[in-house]
Simulated scan of single mutants.
Amino acid sequence: MSQKTAAPDAATSAKAAKAAKPTAAGGRNSLARLGPLPWIGPCIALILLVVVWPVAEMVLTSTHKISGLGIDFGFNGLGRYQKLFSDARLGTVMTWTLIWTVLVVGFTMVISLGLAQLYNQQFPGRKYTRWALIIPWAASVIVTSIGFRWMLDEVAGVLNRMMLDLGLIHGAENWTGDAAHAKPWLIFVAVFVSLPFTTYTLLAGLQTVPGEVYEAARVDGASSWQTYFRITLPLLRPSFLVALVINLINVFNSFPVIWGMTQGGPNTDTSTSTVFMFILGQTDVGESAAMSVVNFAVVIVMVLLFLKVSRWNEES
């Protein structure tokens, strides 16, 4: 009796195993049809959460009239944009933003290229100078900016004290009290805090250049300048473009340096578009959101134009 019962059980198990194989294969095929989606899905979700959603909210907010206290007076269409573009301060702010971006990025790239070239050489103490370069990067930008503001203070600033002692000035200067004095210092501090990232990016690019290329150039009789302009710079192009694009975006959107040193003043004379956006938000959130949309559009257009002109995806 037990033998007869065991036989059907074995047959049933075999049938179940056969039926399970297509199911498992079907599950694997379904997963394969999804391709890389299970792997990139979390990244897409994160982008939607931290980029797309805030941008959508920003655009929606710019169509509402909202007071500085957060009171929403309802849909206002393009009213906030009309108010923004009729603001007499906007032209001055955008002009200074353009000058600020070009000068800070330009000085940063030129100085960083020289520093990267220096740090790519062998010399005593190179390791320690590389460490020292990290300090402006490791410190908070707002803390660095406030430190420079106190250094430039008219009453307690160390710069005035030193220059008075050396007889370079006859009276204490208010270095951040007016735009003419403040703007050069703002550019200096912005370049100072931008150098570490840019220098290390270019240094990484320099260290990927094969030594055999330089050996071949020397054998062919190329001079140092010919080697630099015809070999080093072309091979450094990918790293240079990455550093340049990231600096353009960061400097254009920079807030801590200007806010920490002058808060955009006096009036709005040292305000870039990002600082101006924050100032507008204290009285009109809708207009501030409109300024944010303008900033976002300018950054996108600026980067696309740069990539188009630089032909970033073409081989050297």
Rank of each mutant, 00 (worst) to 15 (best):
Trp312Leu: 04
Thr208Asn: 11
Trp53Thr: 10
Tyr200Ile: 04
Asn250Arg: 09
Leu46Ala: 00
Leu49Arg: 06
Asp178Ala: 12
Ala290Glu: 09
Trp100Asp: 01
Gly147Lys: 08
Thr176Ser: 08
Ala290Gly: 02
Asn253Thr: 14
Glu154Arg: 12
Phe75Ser: 13
Asn174Phe: 10
Asn267His: 07
Asn174Ile: 02
Tyr81Asp: 14
Thr176Glu: 05
Gly205Ile: 06
Gly125His: 02
His170Thr: 08
Ser224Tyr: 01
Ile231Gly: 11
Gln207Met: 13
Ala6Cys: 05
Gln263Met: 12
Phe197Ile: 09
Asp153Gly: 14
Val285Tyr: 15
Lys183Ala: 13
Val93Asn: 09
Thr201Ala: 02
Ala24Glu: 13
Thr63Arg: 07
Thr97Ala: 11
Val143Met: 05
Asn267Trp: 14
Gly68Asp: 07
Phe240Met: 11
Asn120Pro: 03
Val242Lys: 06
Ala20Tyr: 11
Ala290Gln: 07
Thr101Gly: 10
Lys127Val: 12
Arg311Glu: 04
Ile47Pro: 10
Val141Thr: 09
Leu236Asp: 05
Gly211Trp: 13
Ser140Asp: 08
Pro238Gln: 04
Met94Ala: 03
Ser62Trp: 02
Ile169Leu: 12
His181Asp: 07
Ala172Ile: 12
Asp178Pro: 00
Ile231Pro: 13
Gly265Arg: 15
Gly205Thr: 04
Phe278Lys: 10
Thr198Gly: 00
Leu31His: 02
Gly106Asp: 04
Leu78Arg: 03
Phe255His: 15
Ala216Tyr: 06
Ala132Lys: 05
Ala204Asp: 05
Ile142Val: 14
Ala7Met: 11
Gln122His: 14
Ala204His: 10
Leu236Trp: 05
Asp284Gln: 05
Gly91Tyr: 01
Tyr119Ile: 01
Asn76Arg: 09
Leu31Gly: 00
Thr232Gln: 03
Tyr200Gly: 06
Ser271His: 01
Arg161Tyr: 01
Ile66Met: 02
Val213Lys: 12
Phe197Gln: 00
Gln207Arg: 11
Phe252His: 10
Ser2Arg: 13
Pro238Phe: 06
Phe85Lys: 06
Val298Cys: 07
Thr23His: 11
Ile246Asp: 02
Val50Phe: 15
